[in-house]
Simulated assay, not measured.
Amino acid sequence: MTNSRGVLSLATAVLLLVAGTSCANDDGDPTDPRSNPPASSPSSSSPTSTSPSESATAAATATVNDYYAIRNQLRRDPTQPLSMLKSVTISTELMTQQTLFKRERKQGLHQTGETKVVELQVQSVNLDNSDPQAGKVPTVQIDVCFDVSGVDVLDADGKSVVTPDRPDTGWIRYSVANYQWDSDPDGAWRIASSQDIERTPCDA
């Protein structure tokens, strides 16, 4: 049985702090700054910058979060359009998910509850964009442990089709790629592929 996958949003922010001050005499007379120093002013801090790798990690992680949220939505409400998958998937993953959802909807299946992300671990970041036509594009590899203990899948008659021995948690490795890196380095990240992996179960 195909495990449900879910997502919670996980992203980073950059704070820009710029402080400034000026000093002037109340009476307007010039004074020697050495004998009358300016009042204490807030210290200025330079803008916090993020590296391309950090930005890619944040954007790819956000995509994974959105992916799980959209899958939960589509499985709970079969009337929602499958075109929503294009905002978070591409390539093999898009075709796989479209096939899965079409089959489940044809069978009259729908989900109750929500798949949750228990752990999310970034395994690698590769920003090589040397040959997009051949699939050599910036890619972030992310491992996700999901929890489906609160999820049930019902048929058209409202009966559960979940087997009693279904594990509550599992691990999946995602390759999140950006095929439009040159024009949209932050917003064009999509999950390109995924695979189940054998790892020690995480705590649900």
Rank of each mutant, 00 (worst) to 15 (best):
N65C: 03
P167I: 07
A13V: 14
Q133K: 15
D203L: 14
A156R: 12
V125R: 10
V64D: 01
D147I: 10
A69F: 06
A60Q: 02
A204W: 11
D196Y: 04
K116D: 15
W189Y: 00
T50K: 12
D203W: 11
A13L: 11
T115Q: 04
T31R: 15
S53N: 08
S91C: 06
D29R: 12
A59H: 08
K116I: 14
R173E: 08
I191Y: 01
P132W: 01
S55V: 08
T48F: 08
S183N: 00
G187C: 00
P42Q: 11
V140M: 04
E93V: 03
P78R: 12
D32R: 02
T12R: 08
D29Q: 14
I191K: 01
P37V: 15
A56D: 09
A192H: 14
S149T: 09
Y67V: 11
P201F: 03
T139H: 07
S22P: 06
G20F: 01
L127Q: 12
L74M: 02
L127M: 12
C202Y: 15
Y179G: 05
S175R: 15
A60C: 02
D184F: 00
T169K: 05
V140E: 01
G6W: 03
D155R: 02
T115L: 07
A188R: 03
S46K: 05
L82T: 04
G187W: 00
Q141Y: 07
R76S: 11
R75T: 11
L120A: 14
T96C: 09
L100Y: 04
E104A: 13
D131E: 07
A59M: 07
L127S: 13
D184C: 00
R190Q: 04
L8N: 12
S130V: 05
G187Y: 00
P47A: 14
G170L: 12
S193M: 02
T31A: 15
T48W: 04
T115G: 13
G28I: 05
A56H: 04
Q80G: 09
D184Y: 00
R75V: 09
T96L: 11
M95K: 11
I197D: 05
G28Q: 00
T92N: 06
K102Q: 13
A134R: 14
T63L: 01
Y174L: 07
T63M: 03
I191A: 04
V137I: 05
N129D: 10
T57C: 07
A13N: 11
R166S: 04
P33W: 09
D128H: 07
P167S: 03
M84C: 09
V144T: 07
T50R: 11
S44I: 11
N72Y: 07
I142H: 14
D26L: 15
N178C: 04
V176E: 03
T200R: 12
A69H: 07
D155L: 09
C202V: 15
D196I: 06
G135Y: 13
S46P: 05
P201H: 02
Q80S: 09
V7K: 10
P164I: 01
I90D: 07
C23Q: 14
Q195V: 03
T163V: 10
M84G: 14
Q111K: 12
G135H: 12
N126K: 11
A60V: 02
V118E: 11
A59P: 10
L16Q: 08
A19L: 06
T2R: 12
P47L: 14
P132E: 00
